[in-house]
Design a protein around this nucleic acid. Structure first.
Lengths: 202, 202, 202, 202
DNA sequence: GGCTAAGCGAGACGGTACGTCTAGTCTTGGG
DNA sequence: CCCAAGACTAGACGTACCGTCTCGCTTAGCC
């Protein structure tokens, strides 16, 4: 029978199983430490002490502290700002933009800023960050824009990914570079002026 | 009488004068180290070794290594991308945008990314970065936009600083977050679509 | 009742039998590792990797790595320097002394030196070493001396074990402390002067 | 003037002077730790914690912990068992032998045993141990024997260094290998029988 | 033939210490 | 007072082994 064919891609797990507890305890400790003392407080040493998990065990799963934080960010990002899935694409875009703005001065924003610095030194962190956090989200936004184009709401001659840059770029710019607060009003303005254009109408 | 009293607000300079050489040697060594090995290679220890300037002397002038790099960035930024001063405000804006894009994968872009991470931990770095690098430039851009509004080229109901965000945000987003290359074509598209707007015309 | 017959002190072996292979593979791997990289190369981890025997299985048989090495030493010692069993006691003593000297810069000597350090920290190692290696040999030597005394070749007022110290002490001193080469000539001199005495004859 | 010529092999010390305190504190902490918990308790980490001296500072002076302990041994050895300097060479030898025996189960003996194991792995430790501790002492003993030979007390056909082996070998053998207590009586017997010889007189 | 031990390979885990690195401060001597 | 040199405290880094612990599987005697 075709259906019977065992593919078994993972050869079969040998040895002791990894304890769920370790992963959870480490991420939770990391979260707490960063909340209290910022990214620089989340040293592997401190995470180990706080979580009760041995340093060795941490290094068995993550190659360095940056990846621990990327891992954490991945989880809390989807949790704090779920990717919108409504039918109305324009609404979905604004929801996503507002979500990003809202968490910009909370833990996710904090992690993001710190990791972007790390990403510059360590390309693996950059890749992890892009693949784990940004890709999924901008993919979704990109699809929303395509739908809006098909519905006739947005012009069709612009590549969706570029449109994503135009909508989200200003928000991240304010957050990462200017270090200025973001609120719904700002997001609303960005949305309005990007869609309407800056040019004066005669 | 006796002491040849100087009125000058700096009380009166005693002892050996500061050598000009020190400042230059430090910044040059920093530049070289970052070019070769990235931001993380520019440790104070390495800068000291390379420049022949004692650590003590470095710390006498800069409080920590981030500020050395900010100092360096300030200098090379204005050098690499002079603030445009033409009469045509729209041309000035595009020139500035292109300039930023051009250096994004060179030393200034590298420094910027690294410093933004540092800025998150250390508010002084953030302030130095904003005041020393971003403020002057976005001020100039802001003035250009105001002039374009007065000339009737851009709509008048948008705050100039917000317009700066819309134009430069996407560029920095691509550079800092996406880590994707920037070129003139991209900049041209951003300018075009931001001024024309994303909405479909009927 | 048959069942009641409790002759055997070892209750009765249940479960899977211990594989001979394990013991051999471990000792052989240990021997190879020490030959290549000295005592410190023979970590349990390395022995396990090299022999293909799981760490668990090693610890099931030996309480720690020192005892593995003592075990190894015991085997190769009797193999490399068989305890002499001739009729002439003085010849037996000299043969034994020469044997010890010969292997002093080979594997047995190497193990011995390393284990003596270990023995100082861990009394169990000390006991194992003494009981497993030294006791059997010095017992034999002691008996040889007693026979020589009975034959009238050696003076009778000296305790045989002390005589063993006098004969073998210098050899081990050279080997363990001085780290100087040993050869037959040296051994011959020791034998000669210890038996004849250092005092000047008038 | 010839006398004025400055050779100055050490060019002249620049920078901050090494603090005497560091060396003392480290050695004292090492001594205390070994006294309390044996050689294995004297980890660099523990020494640092106990002495209040930073690990970095320790590693600046000693390449590893074994050399710290060798250094310590060198000092306490000469302190605990001063090299005898009397006129009577035979008395000097016996004093030295008794001294060695006396400290064999005290700190110096403990250090010695541990370091001999270390010396087998690390040739630098071996060299340090021989040059710093054994050479000076056996040199002195060797000279004493030569004087005894000149005085006609000991036979002249034996190389002094070999005689040293014969006298001290048994003592170290008992201490290092047998791990048996040493006392004056034992030392006396060794001296007596080595000088008189084992052979039966007719 | 099914039950119950024990042996075994694999590998996760909590620990301890290692030796290195960098930061930033302090001390010394000379200009 | 500046400067170069370098000792110093402090603390994280990532690595290497240790000895213990689960796993799933194999191998045997026993009822």
């Amino acid at each position: 029978m075709l259906r019977n064919r065992k593919k078994s891609p993972d050869p079969l797990p040998r040895g002791r199983r990894r304890s769920e507890h370790v992963g959870q305890a480490v991420l939770e400790a990391t979260r707490a430490l960063i909340t209290e003392g910022g990214y620089s407080a989340a040293t592997i040493e401190a995470i180990s002490a706080r979580s009760g998990v041995a340093k060795t065990s941490i290094y068995r799963r993550w190659p360095n502290r940056a990846t621990v934080v990327v891992d954490l960010l991945m989880r809390i990002a989807t949790e704090a700002v779920p990717i919108p899935t409504g039918r109305d694409p324009q609404r979905a875009l604004r929801t996503e933009m507002k979500g990003v703005a809202e968490v910009s001065d909370q833990l996710p924003g904090q992690l993001l800023r710190a990791l972007l610095g790390e990403a510059q030194r360590d390309p693996e962190v950059a890749t992890a960050l892009i693949d784990g956090v940004f890709h999924p989200r901008s993919d979704a936004s990109s699809r929303a824009i395509r739908r809006a184009q098909e519905e006739g709401a947005l012009r069709k001659d612009i590549p969706p990914l570029l449109a994503v840059d135009l909508l989200f770029g200003p928000i991240f710019y304010r957050m990462l570079v200017r270090h200025q607060p973001l609120n719904d009003a700002y997001v609303g303005q960005v949305f309005k002026y990007v869609t309407e254009g800056l040019k004066a109408r005669k």
